[in-house]
Structures are given as structure tokens and as C-alpha cells.
Nucleic acid binder design. Structure first.
Lengths: 360, 360
DNA sequence: TTGAAAGCGCTAACAC
DNA sequence: GTGTTAGCGCTTTCAA
């Protein structure tokens, strides 16, 4: 290899006996350059394999052409799809992505917030760990717009784009009630984050409205072990353990709503092993519509989350705040946008009397 | 908000009546600065909320402190884990990640390669689309080290860190043969990429060695529909269709090895619906050990891929080539490192006479 | 239409 | 120890 120096504007200018300035304008497609010169410059740039230096450009223009994306765990299928959607939408607008992973650790989050400030990214999209927001506050005060993804962080001057989990839990719970269940359980992650809180609230509210009473012990928290099994998605193993306990308590008229499909899967298996029929003895529904959900036996009723829409909307919102495309940066109070999720009814809730064959 | 300008070294210098230079050295922890001055500088920096400007620093130091990560599809659980591992290892060494997604499109890949050149990243880790490598060649010739992830790209001057799929296919196939199967099928993605080729080779080789003959129609290609279902992982729907066809052909003595667990899942379901027992009528094994594999009914025998190890090794290799930590950049012919995968035996192959209860 | 000069924020080389 | 000068590669005044 010839690790030779990259060609710069200066090289082109020297070769053509022009000023750096003229070359810059020629390549930038500005007027005030003769067509002939422009053509010569283009050719020489091509010949030299010139590639503009983004950092130098950013330095003088004072915009980084990069946005920071902070994710707790890329192995979570929802976040994986979010990443794709955001990357795509970002690139369409000319922005590159600096990806940072927190693994749900505040320490990591603090570090990446600092890192993002150093880079001077034009904006930040973040799934916050949701404990302490001083570092995000600093970032905000330095003038960097922040849009929160999926999880709220009250008190922070930042928009939020997420999923309407309150509504999704309401509808999923309603479906279970409609199916005749009266002994309902909610299995959720043991994290103090808004999506969980919202689902709990939705679950509770519908039960209240319908006059169904369940004890507090029907809202079950699955211990989170993300940090140990670094960068694994939720592991069904913990919900499996819970499913085994549950197996002794449930029976006809029982139903389990899980905060994510992995939990549903663990419970599922525990039930099956215990000789319980799904949905005969107990109905089960999940959240996420992960690719495996439709192929389980029986297929799993679940909530399909609008990952791509959340991602695209979040980028758009950030762009508004950044004042992209030369427009004025939008100001004003933080906006919250919660996108609706769709309940996908399959055989595990028996609600349709389905035979379990309706593979999507 | 007060989108006030970020504090710079100059601001600190002015406030303290020092030169920018002294401030720089004080903060950089170099000698040739009195302890007293250093303390004053530190305090003022703190007071002003000073954050160093990475881009300016990179520009003069001529290293970006960033590496590019090019992924075909973050929703593939293997790549998701790869991303986490790489981000972590990179950050340990002070490198930030520029993430680019190609969705297996060469056009996208060309664009991101160009983008990475503009950023002048110090190195690139890429899962190549594997059709045409001119853009990677250009990148290489500009002096940027490239390490390929998981897929080979012969002819390119770049290291490769991946999984030994030849070996994994050999062992998985051997397991099926040991279980008594003689009518073997391999279900693979319809992509012209090295992992698929290696698995096919492994499959074929073992059969030859054992004197088992199967027709060419036993190697089945599942059409890839990634681009349409943008940023979805493999969808079991296509393998499900194939599973339905297969259901009519298989019976005791048959076995199916799938190139990934999603394919196994689709086949699984088709078989179950058709009244075939797994592993009684047909054994099934997958690749990837996705989190759902152990919880299927019966639990799926599969190959556990060393995602974290691949990621960490790839970063290390890249660092060597970059000559990080002040060391000399390693030169020399491209190196290939294939990490071994582990076959996880579960009930779907019946090889252990397992009852299907050994949840991991 | 083109060029000269200044500067983005930082670090390195060399003076003092 | 500290300051001065120069320069990374680029864009933007402002003159010519």
C-alpha cells in the first residue's frame, strides 16, 4: 500500500495554477467560476482522487454533519430496527451517525454524552437510561437539540418520540378480557422506565374500567440481567422461571400479558412443560411482534411496534430543532409524539377461535 | 435555551491572561507547565464548561479518533451483538463509531465507503455486500486499514475476522448423521456470500466422507427479501413456504440443517402443521443460537456464533493495522481469522435422547 | 471571474 | 515555564 497523503484543494490548485479558493468554489458548484475552469478543476480533482475533508469543512462551517445516536442495547430487535430507520433517514439528509451504546448504564451514558459534546454533533437521538439527566441537560444547554427515543425523561428540555404503550397495553388487556379472562397477569421488566410504567398504567386502567380486580402480585417484575449477558437481548430464562411459578397459579380464565415477546416465550415454554394449554388453560400475549412470534406454537398474539416510524419521525423532529436545510431552528416547548401500536391477534389468545394456522 | 458558543481554549486563555498554547498543554497534562498554572487552567475550564473540540484536534493530529462500522443489517441478531462488542472495544481505546447500514445493497455500500473517506476515519470494519470491491479498494489505497467482518472478499487487501462456518456446518451435519439421518437437507439464504458457500462446502464434505449421497435439490436456497422488508431480519415466511414443500418429502431418516435459526423456525412450523414430529420424523438444526432457539418446542439444536469474540478480535486487528497506541502499524499480507462456533445440542435433533427440557 | 487574507479550534516546533 | 509562530483543510469575506 502507498499510504500517501490524501489530495487536498491545495494540490488541485497547485496543479492548475489556481487559488485554493477558486477550486473550492468550483467544486462547491457556486457561481463566479467560469465553466471552463470548473471543468478543469473537476477533471483534476477526479485525476487526483480528491475527496473533501468533512472534518475541516465542519470546523469552519460549525456544523458537524453528524448526529449522535445513543442506544441502550442494539440486540433489542426494536432498537435494531430503530437504528436502521434512523441511519437511513439521516443519510438521506446528509447526516452521518455516531453510534454509542450504553447497556443501560448511567456511567456509560455520562461518558457518551461527553463524547458527543466533544464531537460537537448537530443533534442527538437517545434512548435514555432514565436515571439522572444532568449530562443531557449540559448537552442541551450547550445548544445541542436532543430527541428522546421511546423512553421519557421528565424535566429535560427535549422532545420525545415513542410508542403509545399506555394505549397498546389497554388494547392488549382489553383483548384478553374480551376473550373471557378474568385472572390477568402482567409480566414486565424490572426497570424504572416510562414504557413499563405506561403499560402498567394501561393494564390497571382497563381492569378498573371493567370492574376486574387483580392483586398487586399480578404485576410481576422480571429481573434484568442485561449487563451480565452483555449485549444480549432479553433472555427468556428469567421469565421462564417466573412462568414455572405462574404455572401453579393459572388455569382457565387466566391470561398473561408480557412486556415483550421474549418474556412471553419464556412463560409459554414453562406452561407447555407444565401441561398447560395455550390458549385453552391460559391465554398469552406479548409485545414487539418479534419475527419469531408468528411461528411459535401456537402463534403469539402480540403488539407490533412502529419502529421504522418512530425512527423516521425522531429524525424529522431533530432536523426541525436543528434548523436543517437552512430553515430556522424550531423553538418552543418540548413536544411528545407517541405513535400507535397495533395489536396482532393470533392463536395464543384464542380470541378469534383461530386454529393457529394464520401465519402472517 | 442559550445556544451560546462553546468555550474554547482561547476563552480560557483570555480569562487567565495566558497563551492558548499554555492552556492546551496544561489541559493535555504535559510537563512544562507549573502545577499552579495547571490548577488555575483546570478550574477555569471547569467554570466555563470547556469541552475539547474533537474535530479540531483530529484535523491537526491527522487522526480521526473514529472508526467506520459498515453493517448490512443491524436487525440480524448476530450483527446486533457484533455492533455492541465493537462499540465497547472501540470506546475502550478512545475510538468513536460511525455506523453505516447498507441493507445488502452495493449502491449503498459505495456511498458509505465514500462517506467514510470524507470523514477520514482511521479504519473501517465492514460486513461487505460482496459484489464489487472497487470502492473498498480505493479506501485501502488511500491508506485506510479495512477489516472484513464475517464475509470474505477475495482480492481485497484486507484482513478478515469471522466465523468458521465450514467447520460449524461439518459438525452440525455430522451430528445429524450420528443421529441416524441419511436424507439430509441444507436450507440456505439465496445470497452469493462466503458464509453460505462455506456451510455448503462443509455440508457436502462431510456427506462425501461418510459416503452419504444426496441430490443437488437437497441444497435449498431461500429467496432473500431483505430489501423490501427493509431492516427486518430474515423472515421465516420464506423458509416456511419451503418447509411446506419439504414436508411432503421428508420422513424418518430425514434431517434439515438451516443456515440460520429463522429458517429453522419456518421449517419447524411447516412440519408441525403437517403433523410431522420433530425430531421423531425429521431432525432439525439451525445456526445462530438466537435467543428463542432454546425455547421452541422442541428446543432447537443450533450453532452458537461467537459474536462478541469476532467483534473484539476485529477491533484488535484493526488497531494493529492502524498502529494505535503509538505503535507501528502492522503491515504484511492480509490475515484471516476464523473463530470456532459451538454446536448446542438440544432436543430437535434427538441426538441426546433429550426430553426437551434442558432449557439452557 | 479570480485571488488574498482571515479564521474555525487545536497542537507542535521553536524561541525566550 | 511560557509565548510566538505556523499550520491541519476548508470556506467566507472582501478586493482586484
Amino acid at each position: 500500500m502507498t499510504p500517501r497523503r490524501r489530495a487536498t484543494l491545495r494540490d488541485i490548485a497547485a496543479a492548475l495554477d489556481l487559488s485554493v479558493n477558486t477550486v473550492s468554489r468550483a467544486l462547491a458548484g457556486k457561481d463566479a467560476v467560469s465553466e471552463e475552469t470548473r471543468e478543469r478543476v473537476r477533471r483534476e480533482a477526479e485525476r487526483l482522487g480528491y475527496v473533501p475533508n468533512t472534518m475541516a469543512r465542519s470546523l469552519v462551517l460549525r456544523n458537524a454533519m453528524a448526529i449522535g445516536l445513543v442506544i441502550t442495547n442494539p440486540s433489542n430487535p426494536f432498537y435494531a430496527r430503530l437504528i436502521s430507520a434512523i441511519e437511513e433517514r439521516g443519510r438521506v439528509h446528509g447526516y452521518s451517525l455516531m453510534l454509542m451504546v450504553t447497556e443501560d448504564s448511567v456511567d456509560n451514558e455520562r461518558r457518551v454524552a461527553e463524547e458527543l459534546m466533544r464531537w460537537g454533533v448537530d443533534g442527538v437521538l437517545a434512548v435514555p437510561v432514565q436515571h439522572g439527566a444532568d449530562h443531557w441537560d449540559r448537552l442541551r444547554r450547550s445548544g445541542t437539540p436532543v430527541v428522546l427515543l421511546n423512553r421519557d425523561l421528565p424535566g429535560l428540555d427535549a422532545d420525545l418520540v415513542g410508542v403509545d404503550y399506555y394505549d397498546s397495553a389497554r388494547r392488549a388487556t382489553g383483548l384478553l378480557l374480551d376473550g373471557g379472562a378474568r385472572d390477568l397477569y402482567l409480566v414486565e421488566e424490572d426497570l424504572d422506565i416510562s414504557p413499563v410504567a405506561e403499560r402498567v398504567r394501561g393494564f390497571r386502567t382497563v381492569l378498573d374500567e371493567r370492574g376486574v380486580t387483580v392483586g398487586d402480585d399480578h404485576i410481576i417484575r422480571v429481573p434484568t440481567r442485561r449487563r451480565e449477558s452483555s449485549s444480549q437481548p432479553w433472555d427468556p430464562v428469567d421469565s421462564y422461571a417466573i412462568g414455572r411459578e405462574l404455572a401453579a397459579r393459572v388455569g382457565p380464565g387466566s391470561a398473561v400479558l408480557a412486556g415483550n415477546d421474549y418474556f412471553a416465550l419464556g412463560v409459554y415454554r414453562a406452561f407447555t412443560e407444565h401441561g398447560l394449554a395455550v390458549p385453552g388453560d391460559v391465554a398469552v400475549a406479548g409485545h414487539g411482534d418479534h419475527p419469531f412470534a408468528a411461528y411459535l406454537n401456537p402463534p403469539l398474539t402480540t403488539v407490533r411496534l412502529p419502529a421504522a416510524e418512530v425512527g423516521a419521525t425522531a429524525v424529522d423532529r431533530l432536523l426541525e430543532r436543528m434548523g436543517g436545510e437552512g430553515g430556522e431552528a424550531a423553538t418552543g416547548a418540548p413536544r411528545t409524539t407517541l405513535l400507535p401500536a397495533e395489536v396482532v391477534v393470533r392463536a395464543s389468545t384464542g380470541s378469534t377461535g383461530s386454529t393457529g394456522t394464520e401465519v402472517p
